[in-house]
Each structure stands twice: as C-alpha cells, then as structure tokens.
C-alpha cells in the first residue's frame, strides 16, 4: 500500500514520508517548552518506531477502521516503557504522527500527571512534534481514562490506551471462545455481566469500561474511560483509535459511527450525575474528580479535564472553591 493510501476521509495525520506538502505547523502553546527535534544520527527514527513497524501498525489501523469495533491483532513492539504505561496507545500514536501534528496527552483528564508528561516528552524528543494541552489545538490526543469535555472536531484523532481490549474476558477467559462469540455476534454474555451488576447492586454498577456496541455489530470495551464519556463516542466527528500493547490489539471507531451503550429495557443506560458544579470553574454536566484537601477529610469536586477547567477560568468562570 502506498503512503498516499493512508490518507482517507478518516484523516490519518501525515507522517514524515509524505510526499504531499505539509500544512502550516500549528502554533505551539507557550507554556510548554519546546523539545529539540531529534538530530539525524541520534539513533532514533522519527517517533521512535522504524518505518516498517509503523507501516504494519497503520495497516492494522486501516483494517480496524474498516471493521468498526473489531479487534485487529498487530505485532506489538517492546517500547521503552513498561506495559500498563500506555505502550499500545504510544505505538498507535507513533504510527500516525506526522511532523505537522500537534500532540496532546492526557491521563485521567489531566495533562500534567507523570504518565501524560512522560509520553508527551517521549514524542517531543523522538518526533520533535509540537505539543499542547489545549484540546482545540491538538490534532492527535492520546488519552488514558477520559475523553475531553470539549467536543472533538473533524480531523482530530483520539488515541486510547487500552489495558484489556476484550470486553468478554472476565466472563469467558478462553480467547478461542471469545473470538468465536465476536464472529457470531453472540453477545448474550455481555448482558450477563450487566445482569450481575443489577442483581448485586440494584443498578448497573459498571462505571467505567462500560461495554458498547459499535455500528450495530461488534461489542467493544471503550477502555477504562468512565461511562460518563460513552455518549461522546457516539457519532463523534473525530477518529477514535484504541491500542492495547500487552494484548497486541488495535481497534477503532471511525468518525460519525453509532456507538450504543448496552443496557436493559427496564434498566436503561445512564451516565453519572454530579450534584455540585466544579469547585474551581463552576462547570456543570462535566466529569468531576474528588480532591481531598486535608487530613480532616475536607474535599472538593473539580473538573477532571484540567484543560477544560483552565479554559473556563480564563474566561472568567469561578467556582465556590476557587
């Protein structure tokens, strides 16, 4: 497949072998220091992975896009970080990143946790791409556990880090059998899990990694994002890619795809509801984190999406705890 072939409607960002002229680079955000671009001869290829590997991953990605929600096996590589630190997401990001891309990395909604900072630094160093914390400015957003509050736009790519891609795993440990179940769309088992929830807790207590049906066919684990974010996956204009490094699987939700959270007629899917607004920016209808303030147990609830919160505060919104 030619490199040009990678450019489709579901925009895969350009990469360094592009022969088409790159668009103007996005402006870097000023609060992040620019990492030096790798010099030729530093020993690392652009975005760390060699071109052959990236091509292999891109092929898996294309297949995943063609079969929404289907887990495509790929030859996951050893990355210079341990499993569980986002090796799947990093490989997907490495494969789609081009010189003109602007990368944002979030972990639990935050741009400044260890995981987010190190992955961002990794790509700033090995690919020399621009990095940002602004959702609106990013072309590629690698995430662990959240989808940004700001609606994503066409042309953006959201890359999820996935620990366990198989939604049926906990009820059916045999991989041969789960593949068979996917192939035949036998998803009764998924409802057994939800049934167990209701039987045990009186309601569907699964609050993250809440299973979804993609494009009316495959059932997919949306990675450990809170179910609060599930509705954002539905009909999303951005391309959503999922990478599981340890399990060597890639799957995808193309832009504007139907993503439906599984439920029962008498226990319909509902997202979490927060009684209080964000203590810092007064936002309602967003996902909040609980922050302990002292040893006496004082606490407050603030936006999990730090960029969203900052943006609102910059626009003059003030919460009670601000």
């Amino acid at each position: 497949m030619s490199d040009e072939g990678h450019r489709g409607d579901a925009r895969l960002p350009g990469h360094e072998t592009d022969i088409t002229p790159s668009p103007e680079p996005h402006a870097r955000t000023e609060d992040l220091p620019a990492e030096p671009a790798p010099e030729p001869g530093t020993g690392y290829n652009f975005a760390y992975l060699d071109e052959g590997t990236k091509r292999m991953i891109r092929r898996a990605i294309l297949k995943a896009i063609a079969i929404p929600g289907y887990q495509v096996p790929f030859a996951s590589r050893e990355m210079p970080m341990p499993y569980g630190w986002g090796t799947g997401g990093v490989q997907v990001t490495a494969a789609i990143l081009g010189r003109s891309d602007v990368l944002k990395v979030i972990d639990q909604g935050s741009d400044d946790t260890t995981n987010a900072v190190s992955i961002r630094a990794f790509f700033a160093r090995t690919a020399g791409v621009a990095v940002t914390t602004r959702t609106a400015e990013a072309t590629v957003i690698q995430t662990r556990h959240r989808i940004p509050e700001r609606p994503l736009a066409e042309g953006q790519v959201l890359v999820y880090q996935v620990p366990i891609p198989e939604p049926l795993r906990f009820l059916e440990p045999r991989e041969t059998e789960t593949r068979q179940l996917h192939a035949l769309a036998e998803y009764g088992l998924m409802h057994v899990k939800l049934y167990e929830d209701i039987a045990r807790h009186g309601h569907i207590a699964t609050t993250y990694a809440y299973p979804v049906e993609v494009a009316g066919r495959y059932v997919m684990d949306p990675s450990p994002t809170p179910k609060f974010d599930n509705p954002k996956m539905d009909d999303c204009p951005a391309l959503q890619l999922f990478g599981a490094g340890r399990e060597k699987r890639i799957y995808a939700v193309p832009p504007h795809t139907r993503v439906r959270s599984l439920d029962f007629e008498d226990h319909p899917f509902r997202v979490q509801h927060f009684a209080e607004p964000c203590a810092l920016c007064a936002a309602r209808g967003v996902y909040l984190d609980e922050v302990l303030l002292d040893d006496a147990g004082r606490r407050m609830f603030v936006c999990s999406d730090t960029d969203h919160c900052e943006e609102r505060r910059a626009a003059g919104h003030r919460g009670e705890g601000a």
Binding site: L171, G188, L189, H191, V192, Y195, I198, A199, D263, E265
Partner: peptide, 21 residues
C-alpha cells in the same frame, strides 16, 4: 463466578431477552 440467576438467565439473554425483571 456468575450468580445462579445469571447462569440461568444467560441463555435467555443469548436469544435476545433484554428485560432484567
């Protein structure tokens, strides 16, 4: 690891039952 009710209900859910009650 699944409750007795879930064990019995699995076949029903497997053929499309979607009403918990």
């Amino acid at each position: 690891g699944v409750s007795a009710g879930g064990n019995v209900g699995e076949r029903l859910m497997g053929v499309g039952a979607r009403h918990y009650g």
